[in-house]
Amino acid sequence: MAEEHDRQPAEQVGDADGPSRRDFLVGSGRAVLCACALGAAAGSLRLAIPRVQDGPPARFPVGRPGDFQMRTLTWLRERDLFVLRDEGGFGAMSARCTHLGCTVRRTADGFYCPCHGARFGLAGELVSGPAREPLPWYRLSLEPDGKLWVDRREEVSAGTRSLGEIEAGEAGG
């Protein structure tokens, strides 16, 4: 206090406490305020992280078995998915290029990605181009509602066919 009066004699400014106690008060006040600011920032960040993500569910119906003709490959545009059917049964393969996520196109001998030229074989195996992984296949099952369901969370080995027991003409369900 004496020090301050020496420096600022004209103004009646000072503190009843010595500098150390005042520094403690000011310091802890500042620390609590910083904690508040950090807490507000952290809370705002936490709010921005979604608990539930929008978008289509990972498990979805693709249609009845009878909707798919024998020896065809059906492109389900909304699902980014190919469903193929042959004598072996049904198979579900992703239509999303493993390079940067463009939708691949059907060609005579497999699939071609228009974005960066990746080529895949008929079973989604990698042929050439910048992609590093083959197109994934997903688990496909017939549920009691008579529809085929695909689960994107469960990958199966390439070329897997299931439900071969369903006859070609059978509508299923």
Partner: peptide, 10 residues
């Protein structure tokens, strides 16, 4: 004033 400043800090 000094007391006032201390009270304010608290």
């Amino acid at each position: 004033l000094p007391t006032d400043a201390r009270r304010l800090r608290i």
